[in-house]
Amino acid sequence: MRGHKKFLALSHAFLIFGSILCIAPFWLLVTASLSEESYAVKNGYSFIPKKWSLSAYQFLLQKWQIFGRGYLITIAVTVIGVLLCLVITMMLAYMLSRPKLPCGKLFNFIIIFTMLFNGGIVSTYIMYSQVFHIKNTLWALIIPNLLTNAFFIIMVKNYFNSNIPEELVEAARIDGTSEFGIFIKIVMPLSKPIIATLALLVGVNYWNDWQNAMYYIDDQKLYSIQSILNAINESSQYLMQGSGGGASLPTETARMAAAVIGALPIIIAYPFFQEYFVRGITAGAVKG
């Protein structure tokens, strides 16, 4: 038994080390954003700054319109995207989960194939910008990401197969309920856990997306919070526009503060949805 105690201690040591490794960068980001600009530029950031200052946040407060708008865009895109994705994915997965579906193998193949092969960003970009004209619209942030991961479809299909009793569906059918009615009245209420999981995985995807904006958005008014962070990354001047310039602006620390503002909502919300998240990853790993 002594060997076990040693191993348990080793496990804790390893996991504590790992946890510190995971948290330390966030800690540094926060302390960096709270340190005094001139001191930080001269001496660098540290885990415990010698000179604290709120000027980075005060500066960003003046720019609240940029960040406020960014958050509105992010929230709108996430909500619309998640709802659309849920409706489309659930219905498609329900179809695939039906026993004896005609051409079922073909439909399955159509979905699996999208995970293996695609036309690449060049032709996708040309199609969306030249044929569908979604450039510089909110749709550019929603449509290309709608069903990015075919795994989600298979995950929901597997859930239906193992959690919706076929007898229940059959009984409702005999009672004269329409197929769509069955889906709404029987399947949906039984699927709350998978709906939560899917909404979460897709929601995080939308919340964190910056790539679509890089391809399709030039209009800064349509920048989501992640695109704003990306723009600051590409040019530190982005934040300084219209601030008159001058050396007194907290250029470096304000960047860190902006990143804190961008990361905060997920960090705060995450502990509440952690369990669903873990469940989702485990469920999604089952092969279709």
Binding site: L15, G18, W207, I266
Partner: peptide, 13 residues
Amino acid sequence: TVILLPYLMSMVV
């Protein structure tokens, strides 16, 4: 919870 946190951050962050 802690070890999973990094996965939820966007690459920009």
